[in-house]
Simulated scan of single mutants.
Amino acid sequence: MSTVTRLDWRPTKTDLLVGAVVVNAEVLAVLLYLAAQPVTVDSWRFIVYAFLWINAGLYAVAKTRPADASRSTKRVAMLVAGGYFLVLAVAGGVVGPSHTSPLASLLTDGHLHSHGSASSSFDLRLLPPGWGPALVYQGSWLMVILMPYKVIGYLSLAYLVYATVIDAAGTALSGSLGLLSCVSCTWPVVGSLVTTLFGSGSVVVAAATTWPYDISTAAFLATVALLTWRPLAR
Rank of each mutant, 00 (worst) to 15 (best):
T3K: 12
T5H: 07
L7C: 04
L7Y: 01
W9M: 09
R10G: 09
R10Y: 09
R10W: 14
P11I: 09
L16G: 07
N24K: 01
A29C: 03
L34A: 13
Q37W: 01
Y49P: 01
A50H: 11
G57L: 03
A60P: 09
T64L: 06
T64E: 02
A67C: 07
V76S: 02
V80C: 01
G82I: 07
Y84K: 12
V90C: 02
P97D: 03
P102V: 04
L103H: 13
S114D: 15
H115P: 02
G116I: 10
F122W: 15
P129H: 09
G130R: 12
G132Y: 00
G132I: 02
A134H: 05
L135M: 14
S140A: 15
V144N: 05
M147N: 06
Y149F: 14
K150N: 07
L155W: 03
S156T: 09
T164H: 15
V165N: 04
V165R: 02
I166Q: 05
A169R: 11
L173N: 13
G175I: 13
L177N: 10
G178M: 06
C182D: 14
L193I: 14
L197F: 00
G199P: 06
S200V: 03
G201C: 08
V203Q: 08
V204L: 07
A208S: 13
A208C: 09
W211G: 01
P212C: 06
D214R: 02
A219T: 13
T223C: 15
V224E: 02
V224T: 08
L227D: 10
T228E: 02
W229M: 11
W229F: 14
L232Q: 15
L232T: 08
A233M: 02
R234G: 14
R234D: 14
